[in-house]
């Protein structure tokens, strides 16, 4: 992306077909427009459902039941949002939990993963093979749900703590793999050698020479990790009983699964019990409003993330 930044100024382009143009950093206007069109349409298609969800959340409950989903509802209503803000200190709490686990978890993941990946990317590391195996073998085999649950709840005693939402996902062999390849291919050996000659220790080389030029890689695994933490609901399902520690996605997921469970399970109590439970569930517009409120921060946070992302990349290129 930043190559386009660097090459902002020169814009002389005599040949429209761009076959022999001198400026290789920019596309011809035609292809540029085509790229805009393709990517623009695709991203529009990606945003559209979200708009759709916003519209449903603003539709009058009764209108929704009568007419079904429509992008131009007959009657609008803010009732869903009113309802959430009246009763929803849970939503606010869950925001807090999600943000906390995302921030702490991402930092932890990036730290552990980059250290591990760096070590196994060094050709002179004697135990490289062993530790690569230790990491990558886990991508293929798992012990299953119950044994993992026992480790977290009974060995580490993490149940109903915030750490049960962070630690089980804090390392991924997948990210280690990406970072290892990154270090291997993107970090010139010359840099490490120069560091070595200066007499810098391994950690020093890593911290002051490698990390700064590895920001694109770090940003990538950081982003993956952050999204993983933000979207996780399964760990909460397993390890969290206390509503005060429920993350956002788990809150949303719970509402969906509850409603499906009640509607599909005809054996629950009598018909009257079922009606009573169904009554206590949030209405569809309310559910959509919660989706909107849960997704909105990401839309605003992502550009920031992206800025660091791009910044990291720029630093990388300046070094060259």
């Amino acid at each position: 992306m930043e190559n386009s930044v660097i090459s902002r100024q020169p814009a002389s382009r005599p040949d429209k077909r761009a076959k022999k143009t001198r400026d290789f950093h920019r596309l011809s206007p035609f292809w540029n427009a085509a790229a805009h069109l393709v990517i623009g349409l695709f991203s529009l298609a990606c945003v559209y459902p979200f708009l759709f969800v916003v519209v449903i959340s603003l539709t009058d409950e009764k209108t929704l039941a009568l007419n079904g989903y429509s992008i131009f509802p007959e009657k609008w209503s803010f009732q869903a949002y009113q309802y959430i803000f009246q009763t929803g200190d849970q939503l606010l709490r869950s925001y807090g939990v999600t943000i906390l686990i995302t921030v702490v978890g991402t930092l932890l993941t990036v730290a552990i993963v980059s250290l591990y990946a760096y070590a196994i990317s060094r050709p002179y590391f004697k135990f490289r093979g062993l530790f690569s195996f230790i990491a990558f073998f886990t991508m293929l085999f798992g012990g299953g749900l119950v044994p993992s649950y026992i480790v977290v709840s009974q060995v580490l005693h993490l149940k109903d703590t915030i750490w049960a939402l962070i630690l089980p996902m804090s390392v991924s062999a997948f990210s280690i793999l990406i970072m290892r390849t990154f270090f291997k291919t993107m970090v010139p050996d010359a840099i490490i050698e120069s560091g070595k000659i200066d007499g810098a220790g391994e950690f020093r080389v890593f911290l002051y020479l490698i990390l700064p030029i590895s920001l694109p890689g770090l940003a990538t695994i950081g982003l993956f990790a952050a999204l993983g933490y933000w979207n996780d609901w399964f760990n909460a399902l397993l390890y969290i009983d206390n509503a005060k520690l429920l993350p956002l996605q788990s809150l949303l997921m719970k509402i969906e699964t509850n409603i499906q469970f009640i509607l599909q399970n005809s054996a629950i109590g009598s018909g009257t019990d079922r009606s009573a439970i169904a009554q206590s569930m949030p209405a569809e517009t309310t559910r959509m409003a919660m989706v909107v409120l849960a997704t909105l921060p990401i839309i605003f946070a992502y550009p920031f993330f992206q800025r660091y992302f791009v910044q990291g990349l720029t630093i990388g290129s300046v070094k060259e």
Binding site: I112, I134, A135, T138, F141, G142, G143, G144, V146, P147, S148, I150, V151, V152, V155, L156, L167, P168, S170, V171
Partner: peptide, 13 residues
């Protein structure tokens, strides 16, 4: 981490 979260539960398979 791998030992705790992956290898310890693995025999459960």
């Amino acid at each position: 981490w791998f030992i705790l979260f992956c290898y310890l539960p693995m025999p459960g398979a």
